[in-house]
Amino acid sequence: MRPRLINHTAGRHAAITPTATGWAAIHQNPGTVRVYDPHLDTITTIPAPDRRTQITADTQHIAISSTHGLTVTTHDGTTRWHRTWTETGETHPNTWSTPHCHLADGTLWTHLQNAAQIITYDPATGRELDRHALPDAGNGWFVEHPHQDALALNIVVCPIDHQQAWQLRLDNGRISAHRLPDAGYLAGFLPGNRYFSTGPDGLAVQHADGHDQIRRDVDDLPDSEPGRHLSEAAVVIPDSHILIAVSTEEDHGYEQHLLLSADLRYHSTVEYPQPRKRNSLRAASGHGRWLTYDDTRGVLELWELDGHLDEHGIPGQLSLFP
């Protein structure tokens, strides 16, 4: 399957993430926050506090999590409010990793990794809306729901070094957190309150209550090569298909991207104009598009499926719109 290239932009990028506007990233030379629309055209550019920065954005605000604390600005860079990590209640803030945040439906979600807490803020005023304690501390990152009616939080628990995934919702303004069973790394949501995850045991699709599990090992996929490794990077595109990255030691730093159905059937291998470097799969949106990044060339590229995948065809069959 050959995808359609929608757009590309040059420059060293980091902290690439989907947002309510489309996308956002840190442009490293010079250090700026770039907010993009769904077509990867630049909406705005503002200075980045430092390079260890996580960002999120909506149509009105940009939230920046840096070693200096949590800052919310307008799109022209005007600061609306700022909190140091000590003021947020974060314990032992560090300089090598900053808490993740996410703007969704007029709420700013923030995960305090050392304090093991989730906070919601009003992005316009900085007023704390709610705070929820988690059982374990650890580095975390948010995964958005394509319809923004739920949010997921992945946590790597330290020093135990195992994964947790939580489904988050707001119930009358209060945070509701439901731990997802045996989730591994949650990569995205699927219709019917299901989710897709990757982990040491391979691939999994299951309902949020733990029922109706579908599991598959990478070695079970067609044309699987011995020693094939599954990258932690995987995305759901659009709501009913999954893109995973696999590689072997003989790939010399390159990887393949495989397209699967929601029941983990193999559809096809993505054929890009140029081979993809390892760890190039970065993010997906609810519009059936995804980003790849080549750190050697310094190019961020936006792709979409060039046609319609026929769920009723045989595995691997691609049916195109006329």
Rank of each mutant, 00 (worst) to 15 (best):
G184Q: 02
F196E: 02
N7K: 04
V33R: 11
L203F: 09
R194C: 14
A152D: 03
A104H: 05
I64N: 05
D76R: 04
D136C: 03
I214S: 10
L264D: 09
G202E: 05
A115R: 09
S280R: 01
E304F: 01
E90T: 03
G77W: 08
S285R: 03
W290R: 05
L190K: 08
G199H: 03
S247M: 10
T71V: 04
T88M: 08
A133F: 07
D201A: 15
A177M: 00
L168M: 15
H61P: 02
T88E: 10
F142I: 02
T125E: 08
P200C: 12
P93A: 08
T74A: 14
L230D: 04
W141M: 14
A150K: 12
E255G: 01
L5N: 07
T59R: 13
E301R: 11
P322L: 15
T198W: 07
T9N: 14
R297Q: 13
K277P: 07
R174M: 00
A15K: 00
P191E: 04
N279S: 09
P38M: 11
N139K: 13
D122Q: 14
H207T: 09
T53L: 11
R265P: 03
S224G: 08
P123A: 02
L258E: 05
G307P: 00
G307A: 00
T84E: 02
D310S: 08
V236I: 01
A133P: 10
N279M: 04
A187I: 01
G184V: 03
S66C: 04
T42E: 15
W166N: 10
P135K: 02
H145R: 11
G253M: 02
V35I: 08
H308V: 13
D239T: 02
W23M: 01
Y293G: 00
T19H: 04
P99T: 05
T32H: 14
G11T: 06
T84P: 05
Y272R: 03
Y195M: 15
V35Q: 15
I118E: 03
D76Q: 07
A48E: 04
R278Q: 13
P49N: 02
Q54D: 01
D161E: 02
I242M: 09
Y272H: 10
Y185L: 15
P226F: 02
H229M: 09
H8V: 01
A245E: 00
